[in-house]
């Protein structure tokens, strides 16, 4: 049998990057399914794209700007209206222990 395109360890790593807590069953299932999809995607390698520019979007336009004019903000109450948890005028999350995200 051919080696899988992506193994369970990679699936776990991608799940961590994606912030998805997967069950063991899901890891197994996704390993199988993603491998099949990636195998299919290999089809692209039949094409020689050496001299082809990548096309990120099809629009014929550049330079779309906005003037530096102030628009009304939502206000604290509306901003927090959908918050799962709040503390006063803040969003509330469990304590962040490490230094920084970026």
């Amino acid at each position: 049998m051919m080696a899988k395109r992506i193994d369970e360890a990679q699936v776990r790593k991608v799940a961590k990057l994606s912030r998805l807590a997967l069950t063991e069953a899901e890891v197994e299932e996704f390993t199988e399914q993603l491998s099949a999809i990636l195998d299919y995607a290999e089809k692209m390698n039949e094409l020689d794209t050496e001299n082809v520019e990548p096309l990120a979007h099809c629009l014929p336009i550049n330079n779309v700007f906005r003037d530096d004019c102030i628009k009304e903000s939502l206000g604290t109450e509306k901003t927090l209206a959908n918050a799962p948890q709040r503390d006063g005028e803040f969003f509330k999350v469990p304590k962040i222990l490490d230094g920084s995200g970026g």
């Binding site: 992506i6 991608v14 994606s18 912030r19 807590a21 997967l22 993603l34 990636l38 469990p94 222990l97």
Partner: peptide, 27 residues
């Protein structure tokens, strides 16, 4: 912890196909 806010909220909130596509795209 706050990491679980992400990983469990997303695991509970998204259906299987959405998870599958997020995984594929992230990869």
């Amino acid at each position: 912890d706050y990491i679980e806010v992400y990983s469990k909220s997303r695991a509970e909130g998204f259906g299987k196909e959405v998870k599958r596509r997020i995984m594929l795209g992230t990869y």
